[in-house]
Design a protein around this nucleic acid. Structure first.
Lengths: 201, 201
DNA sequence: GTCTATATACGGATAGAC
DNA sequence: GTCTATCCGTATATAGAC
């Protein structure tokens, strides 16, 4: 599965990933990539055939990371539902703070070319341990009987959407970037509590 | 403030809006617009000077609609906090079902050129009647003492994010578009309830 | 594998006729 | 106001020398 990449290929991929994430596919040019990675323009096609091919490789790798981080937590056998909520919030918030362009990148690709993401994402979420635990709680009468899709959706919504709308939040609250991040750290603790309140009877 | 537009201008603007919303700025060409609107390519520049200018006009109008719909509800003097939550959910969900590309469009512009949106958005949210009502509830001891930014953020997150991730939801649940919309109609009722549970002590 | 030079196409914009 | 024809810059991609 894992391919070995040469130094040059890695340089190209690193620069390309950074640019694609920041500006998107159409607005990124092969010249940008060659300049940013400090390699000759012709080498891009030599190694990756075309801009489109290069983009697809990067996109798939990025999504694979993105999703496996989630699936890993969701399917953990030992942790409780509550612990899974805390871990998910914490991991995702950290990940996006490190790579702030990730959400919009995913959002755009999801719109322009959903099939490539959806290929990666099998039944890994709705058949996860987390959803099992939620359904157990419903059976036991401690959680409300609502389609678990809402439960799963709400978790991601509360984590990811604030990043997407960060310029608005920063403006409204006159935040610095650092203060915004602190707000997100606060949410690591708040989101699991909120989700529990939402599902409990 | 409102400018009068000729038939030709309206045809151009309509086509341009549809394309910009669907494909974004970079991926939309002036030739696309001229074909879609069935006007001559040269007329685009004759009326709107440049692609960029045309885009800005459309973007501002779109955001203005988007935000004023929210502000209107948030500042209503008569309704309770709970009613405002219900109205917001309902209006926004309806609006996005009619114009499904709106969220990603806003998200992208927010990233690429935040200042133009932020100009429109003054203090209209954090100084709204809705936030006042929330703060009152805090003072009375019925709502938790949490920065209202979380409150405001959570409302929009739960409404908008599911649309953004609709391809994933549709795949996971094997939904048709119609079934997805029904899920969103369900949320009109659920979101206000959830938000209240989140803020209540 | 890496470079220069270039083929080829496309997109934004305008000149100028009607 | 509307059209055709075209300029010009830029983008992707490749040929071919080293």
């Amino acid at each position: 599965m894992k391919k070995e990449y040469s130094d040059t290929e890695i340089k190209i991929k690193t620069a390309a990933k950074s640019l694609f994430l920041e500006k998107g596919y159409s607005a990124t040019t092969t010249r940008d990539i060659s300049k940013e990675s400090d390699i000759n323009l012709a080498l891009l096609n030599y190694y990756f055939t075309s801009k489109k091919k290069l983009f697809e490789i990067i996109m798939l790798e990025t999504f694979y990371d993105f999703i496996s981080k989630m699936v890993e937590v969701y399917n953990d056998e030992k942790s409780t539902l509550e612990e899974k909520l805390r871990l998910t919030s914490s991991k995702y918030i950290d990940m996006i703070i490190v790579e702030p362009h990730l959400p919009t990148f995913v959002v755009n690709e999801l719109k322009n070319n959903p099939s490539s993401i959806l290929k990666i994402l099998k039944g890994q979420i709705m058949e996860s341990k987390l959803v099992d635990q939620y359904n157990d709680g419903v059976k036991k009468g401690i959680y409300k009987r609502i389609d678990p899709i809402h439960f799963v959706t709400n978790i991601l919504s509360l984590i990811v959407f604030p990043f997407i709308s960060s310029p608005i939040i920063i403006k409204m609250k006159k935040f610095s970037r650092k203060e915004f991040n602190e707000m997100m750290y606060e949410r690591k603790k708040l989101i699991p509590e909120w989700i529990l309140q939402m599902i409990k009877k």
